[in-house]
Design a binder for these strands. Structure first.
Length: 349
DNA sequence: CATACGTGGTC
DNA sequence: TGACCAAGTAT
């Protein structure tokens, strides 16, 4: 059994030297000099980092805080502007909840992020992990973060073979027992940095790990097979049709998708429902009665729980055609979610 | 507890 | 090349 009193100290010492630089992060040296993180930026980064890598988040974060420097700025933004800026980052419910949360902070908390874990948990898009991350990292309160990194580190440190998600309560208990009252914010970032860099999913760098000596999995040689996970279900393949209509002035016929469900609230091309490939290719109802040309090739895209094959139809229509056309000066292909941008790219090739 | 919910990088 | 994986949340 590792000495649980010494472990957090060892990790904090490692973090003092190896903390990675991130645009939202106040590093250990600055923090010791009394500089506190901006809760708005910590919250923003934590929402973006949900199921998303630091490398991907970095540029999105910079664009968001440059465009909306404070939570009040964000709360006052147009929905379509925020969704467009989020396009390509995925999990679009995060963007919808980002706006709801910003407006709740302004309306219910006088524009100031609450430090309290329970209060944070009441806000849209903030669950157990993010509430703990914001209260610890932004306010240096002692809360235990349990994300994918910490789960992996704990499973290895204590050689826990119970598969996820059943192992979560035990992993949380282990993580909580290690969380120190001194520098809990730096500790939270340190244990996640450790999981992201040293204690990685494949071929962990045990030789340079600050916790190599107390690590039970390393002693047992099981680090490569932990954490165990319950097998995933196979992804079905679905297919459908999308319609790209371009007016004489170059404007495109687009629609804002319904708030709920896949790509909710995002810009997209009109099209058919997407059905299993065991069924015939659906054509849906074309948005205009015109001469549609089927483009060569197809769009292939994989979502979290299914593969999609899209047939893309294109038409050039007269200037006086009625509909929600977006003019070239207002159309940014980067406002489209990736699957829709792939259809656009096919029409341009 | 299971499922829906994106995308890009990696091996 | 396809499966796995990433600082999870909502229902």
């Amino acid at each position: 059994m590792p000495d649980t009193d010494a472990l957090p100290r060892v990790l904090l010492d490692w973090y003092d030297v190896h903390a990675r630089d991130m645009p939202w992060r106040v590093g250990p040296v600055q923090r010791k000099a009394g500089i506190q993180p901006d809760p708005y930026r910590i919250w923003m980064s934590e929402i973006m980092l949900q199921q998303t890598t630091v490398v991907t988040v970095r540029d999105y974060f910079q664009r968001f805080v440059a465009r909306w420097p404070t939570v009040r700025d964000l709360a006052a933004a147009q929905d379509a502007d925020v969704m467009g800026e989020w396009a390509g980052l995925g999990y679009y419910a995060r963007a919808r909840n980002l706006l709801k949360c910003a407006r709740a902070v302004v309306d219910e908390h006088d524009g100031v992020f609450p430090a309290d874990h329970a209060a944070l948990l009441q806000l849209p898009g903030i669950g157990p992990y993010t509430a703990a991350a914001v209260s610890s990292i932004a306010f240096d309160l002692r809360h235990t973060v349990l994300d994918g990194n910490v789960e992996r580190v704990m499973a290895r440190l204590y050689d826990i073979h119970t598969p996820l998600p059943a192992a979560k309560p035990e992993l949380m208990a282990r993580a909580d027992a290690l969380t120190p009252s001194d520098r809990p914010g730096d500790y939270a970032q340190a244990v996640m940095d450790l999981g992201a860099t040293i204690c990685s999913p494949k071929s962990p760098a045990c030789g340079i790990c600050p916790w190599r000596d107390p690590c039970a999995a390393r002693a047992a040689g099981t680090q490569g097979e932990l954490p165990k996970k319950t097998p995933k279900k196979p992804k079905p393949v679905r297919h459908g049709t999308v319609y790209l209509a371009q007016r004489a002035d170059g404007a495109w016929l687009l629609e804002t998708r319904p708030e709920k469900g896949l790509l909710g609230g995002m810009l997209g091309w009109p099209g058919s429902p997407w059905v299993d490939t065991s069924e015939p290719l659906p054509h849906g109802t074309p948005p205009l009665d015109t001469d549609w040309r089927t483009l060569a090739g197809e769009v292939r895209h994989t979502f979290t729980h299914f593969h999609l094959i899209l047939t893309v139809k294109h038409a050039t229509v007269p200037q006086d055609t009625a509909g929600d056309f977006v003019t070239p000066d207002q159309f940014r292909p980067s406002d489209l979610p990736t699957v829709m941008r792939k259809a656009f790219d096919l029409s341009q090739s």
